[in-house]
Design a protein around this nucleic acid. Structure first.
Lengths: 340, 340
DNA sequence: AGTTAATGGACGTTTTGTGTCCCGGGTATG
DNA sequence: CATACCCGGGACACAAAACGTCCATTAACT
């Protein structure tokens, strides 16, 4: 049943909005018994004229009746409403979650896919699909898109498809190598994305754990310099979010730094920065590429992460307040709501 | 799953059309491999511009791709199409049936509800609901609506609701008493319909089996004459369709007439007339009211009947060629298609 | 009897959708 | 290699739908 709605959403994206609108009109009328147009309009926060259009339609369908005293629901309207209740709950449970999170952190968009990426591979794929859709939607033309590594990002890359809109876009890794397996490195992902969409890419071949001296040398190199400048002036960032300790271990951070991370209360990691519960940066991986301050100029920051275990980490990053779009799953979203 | 589609059909009828349109565009593109806009437009019988709008949308959704050689379906488009097939079949299987029947008999509208009225009371109710909706849709203002008797008509009456559009309408029985049980008589049904919709009604109190002399006397009566004239000048007729022999028995037709009906090959009965396989009238019940020739002037003739057992009878009446709208069920519709 | 709040009609304005034509550029065909 | 054809996409005028706004009329309530 959920499947059918998800399929329809692809072919008729505004289906859900209209369905919900009409449903809530009927619901309000049912609750009010008899109610007038203006009263109803203000309680549903619609203009009178729009409501009137919908009411005319619903009347046409025989779902409500009007007389000179006002509108009331018809028998078939009541039955329809009853039959719809489970559907609405299914379809909009996530929408409500999305809206709550969006408001709580003042973001521009939140997308929640059903399921839990920790336990279901299918959900993980869905997360990738939704992430890819979110990216496609935000691309305008000839954008520079900085991406990070990670398995979630790899899923997004998988789900991108050739698109004339992205033909002029540049994909670049947000940061230099961060010591992960090759197929989840930012470099790899940037190139896959470019190939899949028909876009172009530049890579950043720099080793991890750069000393200050080595850094100064590298940054002099015109090739590298050019890419770094592109990265720092990107219009869109797409990044995963990780649990701080998990990421530290995966990147083989030395034990001293690990201890310091623990002492500082690091919870989350995103594009090489570590965040504590309040969203403060407590540590920074030393490598070239996107810096936190560059995000100020970035127009769209898209964070993608799912799974119940990541809920808290996501909250940390959101608290930092740079995210514009979040793509997550149901399990993580519920965790997030526990922490606001 | 069917339920959710039925709900959507009520709440978003035009979105379902759009869904079908987009589905068939994708389907055609899949079948064609690579195809150009103009070619596709003519094969789908759309104007180029509106197809273009849809294509732009589908491209936006990543369901198809265009390059300079034409349009082709994308991977996610192919998957979507596959996933949608059962949904489309479920949602529009009946639509296709409707269209076939409509074309075969040159009618203006055919409505098919799922199920078999012979075996399911629920389907019978649905038939009534659909019949009521069809009537409501065809009423304009201050119409005279002639109705017959029968259990199906009673269901329609049940499903009518108060409606400002029908407030000025007159409900009249199409013909005089035809010896059925009271609650299924045309008189009763006309009055119920009027009460339910807020319309007005006139009744025709004449006995069955009228001799010529009695007929002449009755028709002189100004009251009766007035009603008869109203009936004959009606704008809308709603009638059931019955199996000839079943109706003859129910109406206690004498054995001689029954034999003659059988000899003539009577298959169907509608508003007092009996029809053979080819739609010829083979017998006429002698009573006052609507005559076959009056139907010429009637703008909308709505026939309502369902159940597998009635399929053949419906074909007979349709062959006669006076019907504009048919409301039936899936089982009867399938039978009908066997006979064309 | 007066007041309130209801629907439905009306109308001008804005937005969206549609029909039509054209252009530059690949593709297939000869 | 040349040519005829068909492609997607841009452009634009026009029609249709949606919308905001105001008003007349009328039932219900005080």
């Amino acid at each position: 049943m959920r499947e059918i709605l998800d399929i329809q959403k692809q072919l008729l994206p505004d289906l859900m909005d209209i369905m919900k609108k009409r449903y809530s009109i009927l619901q309000h009328i049912l609750a009010s018994g008899v109610v007038g147009r203006r009263t109803l309009a203000s309680s549903l926060d619609m203009t009178e004229r729009v409501l009137r259009g919908e009411v005319d339609f619903l009347k046409e369908q025989g779902l409500l009746e009007t007389d000179v005293t006002g509108m009331k629901i018809s028998e078939s309207g009541r039955q329809l409403l009853e039959a719809m209740e489970p559907i609405i709950k299914l379809a909009f449970g996530l929408t409500d979650l999305e809206e709550s999170i969006r408001q709580a952190f003042g973001m521009s968009q939140v997308i929640v896919v059903p399921g839990d990426s920790d336990t279901s591979d299918f959900t993980k794929k869905e997360l990738g699909r939704a992430g890819a859709a979110a990216l496609r939607k935000n691309v305008t033309k000839d954008d520079i898109i900085a991406v990070t590594g990670g398995s979630t990002m790899a899923q997004i890359a998988n789900n991108l498809a050739i698109s004339s809109r992205m033909k002029g876009s540049w994909f670049v890794p947000a940061r230099g190598g961060l010591g992960e397996s090759v197929d989840m490195q930012a470099n790899t992902i940037a190139s896959i994305m470019a190939k899949k969409t028909g876009g172009k890419y530049r890579l950043l071949h720099v080793p991890d754990h750069l000393g200050e001296e080595a850094y100064q040398t590298l940054i002099q190199d015109p090739q590298i310099r050019e890419v770094v400048e592109a990265v720092r002036s990107c219009r869109i960032v797409v990044h995963g979010i990780g649990d701080a300790m998990v990421m530290a271990r995966r990147r083989k951070v030395d034990s001293e730094t690990t201890r310091s991370l623990q002492a500082e209360g690091a919870l989350a990691e995103a594009f090489g920065y570590y965040f504590d519960r309040e969203g403060n940066v407590v540590h920074k991986m030393p490598t070239v590429g996107l810096r936190l301050e560059d995000l100020q100029l970035t127009e769209v920051v898209i964070g993608v992460a799912g799974g119940k275990s990541k809920g808290e980490a996501i909250v940390s990053v959101l608290r930092h307040g740079q995210e514009d779009v979040l793509v997550t799953d149901e399990a993580a979203a519920l965790e997030i709501m526990k922490h606001v």
